[in-house]
Write a protein that binds this DNA or RNA. Sequence first.
DNA 1: CTGTTAGCGCGTTCAA
DNA 2: TTGAACGCGCTAACAG
Lengths: 339, 339
Amino acid sequence: METNKVTIHDIAKSLNIDSSTVSRALNDSPRVTQKTKDKILAKAQSMGYQRNMLASNLRKNVTNSIGVVIPRISRHFFSSVIQGIEETAYDAGYSVVICQSLEELKRERNIIQTLVANRVAGVLISISMETTNYEHFQILNSQGIPYVFFDRHCEIPANNNVIINDFKGGYDATQHLVSKGCKNILHFSGPGHLEIYKNRLKGYKKALSDNNILFKTENIISSKLMEQDGKVITKKLMDDKVNFDGIFCANDQVAIGAIKYLNEIGVKIPEQVAIVGFSNEPVSNVITPSLTTIDQPGFEMGIKATELLIKNIKDQSGTLPPETITMETNLIERNSSQK
Amino acid sequence: METNKVTIHDIAKSLNIDSSTVSRALNDSPRVTQKTKDKILAKAQSMGYQRNMLASNLRKNVTNSIGVVIPRISRHFFSSVIQGIEETAYDAGYSVVICQSLEELKRERNIIQTLVANRVAGVLISISMETTNYEHFQILNSQGIPYVFFDRHCEIPANNNVIINDFKGGYDATQHLVSKGCKNILHFSGPGHLEIYKNRLKGYKKALSDNNILFKTENIISSKLMEQDGKVITKKLMDDKVNFDGIFCANDQVAIGAIKYLNEIGVKIPEQVAIVGFSNEPVSNVITPSLTTIDQPGFEMGIKATELLIKNIKDQSGTLPPETITMETNLIERNSSQK
DNA sequence: CTGTTAGCGCGTTCAA
DNA sequence: TTGAACGCGCTAACAG
């Protein structure tokens, strides 16, 4: 047990040089001759040396981990973002620690604390639905830990953000429904304090006004956008015999709930009712007539966010200006002929 | 910048005691009076002390992280397992590092190396489809790092495993199809070297023989079980006009591929054809007549595996006998009346 | 370019 | 029960 006890001192001793030179060589410092570097690397290899990351971390007071804070890993959108994060981070030599807030502010605070205590190199954050104040992120500033918001960002402009063009997404979704002949379009919206849902709503309003359709407040139905919400909302709509010919859903969960409920009660979704969600895979498996989705590029978003974060981590001066990257959605119209 | 520089020395100094006593108190050692303990804890609180995990890790030569090695995070089954892992680990004070092998042996080896170098407290593993030898896991033994296989385990019995009763799952699936009247049931199986697929196949064979149905080798179609495989296989079957009245799919991906292809070419899946997969959510969203699934308890599996791992981490003696926990699947018959 | 020296902050010996 | 002292393995500062 416990083999691998080779330290830089061992390899220094066997080469009659100093351990600090070995350290420099292993870190590819320019302050070592290529010749001695080669010698040291060869020796290290042959002795089966492996750097003790714990000691290295302590000395540098930082780890090679990137913390990721998301509401839920099981949401398809987030797991595809993580796919992008993982690949980018892995290639750059970082490992990824994933933490779920489960949409609770309390947990989110806790997670940030833990990540700071573990001296992560940087943090990627998509805030929870409960998050209305952002004080807990200040600790990252005070500790000099760079961070990037993605998707669910906060309205503070002085941050690094990688976000979706939610306004255009909402606009496209609504415009699509209008062009399909819908006159009375409902919007299942999210919590009013989250930027992304505010912007999707703005897009919805703009598309209506551009088409000379009157905006009605009662057509906006806000919820936490869980699948269950979709069911409950749709049930109430049907029970109340509310008149509508289109729904623009602000996310996939609520859309799935709505479709499932309609299926359950045996209501055939007519061609002219279209449901537009904001994430790909899960909705695409729910077969309805004329289903169209506004897909978010989750994977690419993960890559962009990680690249931006790493750029900030690598930056020595700490004076990089805050940056906001906006990504576009894709409207995907599905074949309505499938049964 | 860089506030929080409170160390055990600072709090020792302000109390006129030694830092070692503070260390003991903070670790709740029995070798400190309750009175001084209280005093120290109060002071630590008021000074805003936070343990430096990096230093602690170095000294103990182990972190409080659990490594998880899985093929793909975006597979629904794995993300539900992770949900269980996360919750259990979090409650026990561990953080979770997720690593994806992407079904590549090379990456899997690499990951194990990295986890060892980072001195994780333990590892949870579901092996890749390429993994046919298990030497790279020996390094965990030699370093004294406990590990547990879940779902995709290897045939080595002297390990900790949390597995599905795949034999019974395969049996139940096949029996279900037979009882629905199927006489000629195909089986979409996985790589022959993986235990789980071998066992599902055994269950299939047993159910056939119990029903006096002749087993035919040509009814077994093996692949890597990706969605694309399901499409390709089904296309070939249809093109070749192969005669069958039921399919037992060894996972959800391949089932989705099959169903999607049939949808694409406009073939209505007749009532007597049932497709049985091995994971829940994604398939449940694919609406077909008489779809039945054999659900795996992913979340519970994550909990069990993590509990077993933590038990092994906590064990000082290192002589805990290997343990194998078997979990049962649930056959879920879906309402075939939905269109 | 290389060697010397000095910790990072904690946990654990050994003494008292 | 507490204190003193040491070192985990590495890197950074300062010499030369």
